[in-house]
Write a protein that binds this DNA or RNA. Structure first.
Lengths: 165, 165
DNA sequence: ATAAATGGTTTGTGCTTCACAAACGAACCA
DNA sequence: TGGTTCGTTTGTGAAGCACAAACCATTTAT
């Protein structure tokens, strides 16, 4: 038995994650509705912003949802020009899905609108802690190993003026 | 305009949280099924472990779900003796809900069973980071302000022998 | 060149979760 | 006594989702 003081590997985050996600989703739905979006859309847009130019089945893979349902989701997003399907030049069966400028803008709007919802749920955390949380979640979601902040920041700061919500 | 270098308040965690929660839930369902539990049960048990001896409508409040559906949830949990409803001595309309020893044990089992599911989803994070994530989530979920680790650890370590999964 | 496999699409079915409403008994409070 | 609150039951309806079947266009293998 090692001399390590306490075993802290018992802490399982699953239920907490589920709980918080639900609480945010409840608030998000009402906030997102006026924008014509549902939480699911937001997740898809976020994934596309993180790694665009992706095939539909790759998207279905990272979203871990059935391909047929991805079709419907993309139909809705494309109907509002938030997303674009282009045929891949290498394999013309494939659709390359990408966020349109309008989509990026709408996503930013939605995130702004969600600010209060998140503030409500994550109110117990200080700004720095929320940033830590964000970074941990992002890394877990993208599967990326340790990554300097620079990429994310560079990504978020390509919009010059409208930093304020 | 202050001299702060970059605005990092734009990072919204909602979609990421939703995404990760979904990924964990997908895996959890199959793992939890043999134990006769569903993710929702786990959340309820976790809440009860964190703050037991609570009334049903208080539980409905923190769970943010309809009271009528809480009844059904508790019925299922009580049918397996994981939870106990006792009438409150002060107000005999009220039910005081508490985790039974069997419930605590089952919860621990479930968390163990979920280890692999979480490992899969949170694989990109190192153990220390996962612990940080857990602590942030826990604080956000319980609404508790900055809190020393001691409580959580003391809570988790009342079981002496079975630390290993 | 012909056959088989693949990416995407459409349609339909069914399950599960959930919110919400209505009506009830029991207990509390005025 | 009457109004109110807690828990309960039952039912309804919407939404999210997985899954299957059938289809076209295209790619790949034989």
């Amino acid at each position: 038995m090692p001399a390590v003081p306490v075993d802290q590997s018992e802490h399982r985050s699953g239920a907490l994650l589920d709980h918080l996600a639900r609480r945010i989703r409840l608030r998000s739905e009402s906030v997102l509705a006026p924008l014509g979006l549902r939480p699911r859309h937001l997740v898809a847009l976020t994934v596309l912003r993180a790694g665009g130019g992706i095939s539909q089945q790759a998207l279905a893979g990272t979203l871990e949802m059935d391909g047929t349902n991805v079709v419907g989701l993309l139909n809705e997003l494309e109907a509002e020009r938030l997303v674009e399907r282009r045929r891949s030049p290498e394999d013309r069966r494939r659709h390359v899905v990408e966020l349109t400028p309008a989509g990026a803008e709408r996503l930013a709007e939605a995130e702004c609108a969600l600010a209060t919802a998140e503030d409500e749920v994550l109110g117990a955390l200080e700004p720095a802690e929320r940033e830590t949380l964000y970074e941990l979640l992002r890394r877990a979601a993208t599967g990326t190993g340790t990554l300097s902040c620079t990429e994310a920041v560079a990504d978020a700061d390509t919009r010059p003026g409208d930093d304020r919500c």
